[in-house]
Design a protein around this nucleic acid. Structure first.
Lengths: 191, 191
DNA sequence: CCCATTTCTTAACCTAGTTCAATCCAAAAA
DNA sequence: TTTTTGGATTGAACTAGGTTAAGAAATGGG
């Protein structure tokens, strides 16, 4: 089933009745995505919260000078969107693309609102999801501001070893806030 | 009333019945704090979620070399805690101190759990709070990684003009991830 | 399999931001 | 009022990390 993984993901935090499972099932749109496809464009509306069934996505910001900064990677069993744009239903500031051929589930903003209205239980699920996301971002801020690039790199590969295998080094560099050239130097120094 | 402000804060996102208001009222502990007092020590348990009734608090991280990094400021009507430690009931990684004499409300972790168990409606409130916190942190990450110090400083003073008035420059510097000396240079350049 | 494109590496040079140390200033304590 | 004390400023020397450019190594599409 297409929604098997996401139902399992949700039921890790809230128990699901048959009715709720069925309703959830009806909310998602399944989409197969080839590699290197942009699924959310900066500047455009951001109607969807994405769940990764298979493959890997990347969200990034392009600054005025054209430099890309990777904000997050999302692998199988992860949720991703431009949360600022999604929550405010405002133009996106991030671009989201696939880094491999992927299968994703789309939860439309209105469907999510309907879900929360019909089954307030899911407020709990998203409360937990957002609480964890907040914690993750806060830990990242701490590291960005208090540790040198080399330690941030070490922490990245020990925290996300599977991601390190899947993405290009220049994308890890852009996640760490350094240039690919400098990451190259760091790696040489330590291998 | 001690809890007037926090009840107003909560009712901005969920409607409160008399019963709920009364129950909430019974959960908080009021505390008056003199200036420069540590209310949460790194390494210790983090049993409380704090709400600022009056005054200003600062959460910061001390890296192995002893350098302080300010993670957040909290003024009147803001919530603050070491969310990682609070959620996992683990030793704190942040220190929280008052920057002026303050009046704060303490919500104990167990009371919060009890609240969510008794009135699931508050899952919604915290869902919204954490969603916003996540968005805030993500925007900060974007800026930290993609903008030079001077622009981060400009953005800070336009986003938090009232905080700029209240705290020392070296604390703003530590929030921006630069030294006080360098912030001094930036300010000279632009005034 | 080959060609084209993208990614990774290396190296020389450059700069945003740090470090250290001295001086200045303001506010609190005495 | 004078004395501490901590924050702000300045400047000189330094360094983590950036830039540019070129070659080497993967990768991938036809």
């Amino acid at each position: 089933m297409d929604t098997e993984l996401v139902l399992k993901n949700i039921s890790r935090h809230v128990d699901l009745t048959i009715e709720e499972s069925k309703f959830l099932d009806s909310l998602f749109l399944l989409q197969a995505i080839p590699t290197k496809r942009v699924i959310q464009e900066a500047g455009k509306a951001c109607p969807y919260f994405y769940f990764v069934n298979e493959g890997i996505l990347r969200a990034f910001f392009v600054n005025p000078a054209g430099k890309e900064t990777t904000i997050m990677f999302a692998v199988k069993d992860w949720w991703i969107t431009d949360m600022y744009a999604f929550a405010h239903q405002a133009p996106a500031i991030l671009t989201i693309e696939s880094l491999s051929s992927s299968e994703i589930l789309l939860l439309h903003w209105e469907k999510m609102e309907a879900l929360l209205a019909k089954f307030p239980k899911f407020e709990r699920f998203f409360r937990i999801i957002f609480q964890r996301a907040y914690i993750r971002e806060q830990l990242r801020t701490i590291q960005n501001l208090s540790l040198p690039a080399e330690e941030r790199y070490q922490n990245f590969i020990s925290k996300y070893p599977y991601i390190e295998q899947l993405v290009a080094q220049k994308q890890i560099a852009s996640y760490l806030g350094i240039t690919p050239e400098f990451l190259s130097k760091i790696r040489k120094g330590r291998t």
